[in-house]
Amino acid sequence: MPTETNSTHSADPATPVTPTPTPVTVLGLGAMGQALAGAFLKAGHPTTIWNRSAGKGEDLVARGATRAASAAEAVRAGELVLVCVVDYDASQAILEPLAADLSGRVLVNVTSDSPERARAAAKWAAGHGIAYLDGAVMIPTVMVGTPEALLFYSGDEAAYKKHEALLKSLGGQSAYVGADHGLAAVYDLSMLDFFWTSMAGLVHGYALAAKDGVPASALAPFLKAHIALLGLVVDETAQEIDSGEYQGAEANLAVELAGVEHILHAAERRGLDVSVLRGVRDVAKRAVDLGHGADSWTATVEGVRNPGA
């Protein structure tokens, strides 16, 4: 398995770009596929669309998109072909018969799946002479095409550089993160890991307050300020994890673990589900047992890395 971890980000993502009109094809017209095709159209790119089932994309056609009668016809119309479907089983089922048509073109797959599936798809593409980029869309459909929209790309760097302005039509914060085709998915999963566990904590915090009669709306303003604190520790935590040095002089893990235990017991007394909190406690306790009691909270990463310890 590739071990590349260095990221190669493009120039300032906020820099305005004016892409040359480029014929593009979008395969897959779910909500996200339609949003991506719409962004290409808005940026002035001749856009051909195709979907496995009929009845989608009428608005895009009204805006100037060309509906292809077949996937092969759609691919032949585009210099860059973007596929956005439910999973890699679906994308490969569409792409396998199109290998000859895709040869010599740039294929961008923004279908969500695992790094392993992305690497397997890249191997297939390389075997057919297809320049391949794997991608991840990190924003909801309403943000597609905006300067704030974040998308990750990994794989063929030359293909990315050639079409960087075109791809930034989909999002001004688009970033190329490395030659390993699996890296876009790694970034995607890591960021969503943080997002969904944070959302779980948000919901659980509201539920805990509600048990004592505090409505979520009353807690919300204070949580906004609390969440802002996370932004202050992101870089420091990353540095500690990369260096393996967890400075706990100001607040050590053993003390923090005691605080987690207090929250856990309070939630249990109020009849709440505590499976997530128990997981947090167990990971922290494992890190303490591994000798990190005097280190910072970042040392819980050792509990995550050593689940059998």
Rank of each mutant, 00 (worst) to 15 (best):
S275M: 12
F222H: 13
T22V: 10
A225V: 14
P307I: 06
A225M: 09
T66S: 14
V260G: 01
Y187M: 13
R278P: 02
G171T: 00
P23Q: 04
T66C: 07
L192C: 08
T197D: 11
V75Y: 04
R67M: 14
V233K: 10
T5E: 10
E240Y: 11
L60Y: 05
G201M: 02
S114Q: 04
M191A: 10
S174Y: 07
L41A: 09
D295H: 08
E73F: 03
E157F: 07
L192Y: 10
P140C: 03
T66I: 11
N6F: 10
A238N: 12
V83M: 03
H265P: 01
I227H: 00
L277Q: 05
A218D: 13
A99R: 04
S296F: 02
D188Q: 07
A309P: 11
L229W: 09
D156E: 02
M32D: 00
E4F: 12
S198V: 01
H226A: 14
Y160E: 06
A207Q: 08
G33C: 02
R63F: 10
L257F: 07
T300M: 14
T22M: 12
L151E: 12
I227V: 15
G129D: 04
G64K: 12
R63G: 02
S198T: 15
S70M: 07
G57Q: 08
A218T: 15
T8G: 13
S91W: 04
P147F: 01
A126C: 00
L167G: 01
P2K: 06
G33W: 03
N252P: 11
Y132L: 10
V255I: 08
Y176V: 01
L189T: 14
K56R: 11
A159H: 11
